[in-house]
Design a protein around this nucleic acid. Structure first.
Lengths: 147, 147
DNA sequence: ACTGAAAATATAGCCTC
DNA sequence: GAGGCTATATTTTCAGT
């Protein structure tokens, strides 16, 4: 993970369709060497995967919300994780420090579906309460800053 | 946006390095037709961009936190957006409904840097308070469910 | 890490339904 | 308008150095 790797990651976060020739040019390497670097970044797990960012509204997932989950007991264990994974509308789940125990990000088509998702969350063992923050507008979402 | 498009998006969200031949096979189309569909999805903005997911810890951004920002006045306007954009550690920013006005996701190397970021947030016009939720462990982060 | 060649893939033009 | 076929241009990938 030297400066060259970091610059390759910046390029790929911006646009992962760039050719290795182009990547090499951007960081001062041949296409083959750039390719080699990127391959190693993948192998080491620094690059977890290559994916496409989809417009949520365009695929009927226009409602986003963050749900903070309160618990009577510790919920930071695999059974909780699996229970959350089983709810498709939950896009992210984190164990957090603070007033609540867990924080999840939910994406649904409608507020009715959001309500159904909350019902599903309450059904998980240990959940004693939730606070929901509905997203009105997303200002921006961007890659990790590697400056 | 028919069923075929949705299946293409599922494939690409999983792994955007898949060849068009492979994509075509997965949805029952020729490589050329699959390519055509994907091109149109990009043109229409359904696919916003192709990117790589980077392991935050591997690039020295191991600390994640959500910050709820309280405001005395309405902060859902472009000047606020620009002020948040100017803080590199802020990865996402949303205007939300609830007790707070804004919710941002922050990624830093250390808790000291998190503190500095909070200082930066307090410096924005209109901010009257914050509540920070520090991520202890991320259970999972996954693509939008297109089922 | 670079060069050069081989294999795989992406892309464009044209045709058909 | 959408899919499919063919041919060409790029790109990836793998030697060897």
């Amino acid at each position: 993970m030297d400066e060259v790797d970091r610059r390759l990651l910046v390029q790929l976060q911006e646009d992962a369709t760039r050719s290795y020739a182009e990547l090499g040019r951007a960081v001062g390497l041949s296409a083959a060497s750039a390719h080699d670097r990127v391959r190693k970044l993948r192998e080491r797990g620094v690059i977890r995967r290559t994916t496409v960012e989809v417009d949520p509204a365009a695929v009927g997932r226009g409602v986003a919300a963050y749900v903070m989950i309160d618990a009577g007991a510790w919920m930071g264990d695999p059974p909780t994780r699996d229970a959350l994974l089983a709810i498709p509308a939950i896009q992210e789940a984190h164990v957090v420090a603070g007033a609540s125990s867990l924080l999840v990000k939910v994406r649904t088509a409608t507020t009715e579906e959001l309500q159904a998702t909350l019902r599903g969350i309450y059904a998980i063992a240990g959940v004693s309460g939730t606070q929901t923050v509905v997203v009105l507008e997303t200002f921006f979402e961007r890659p990790i800053d590697l400056g």
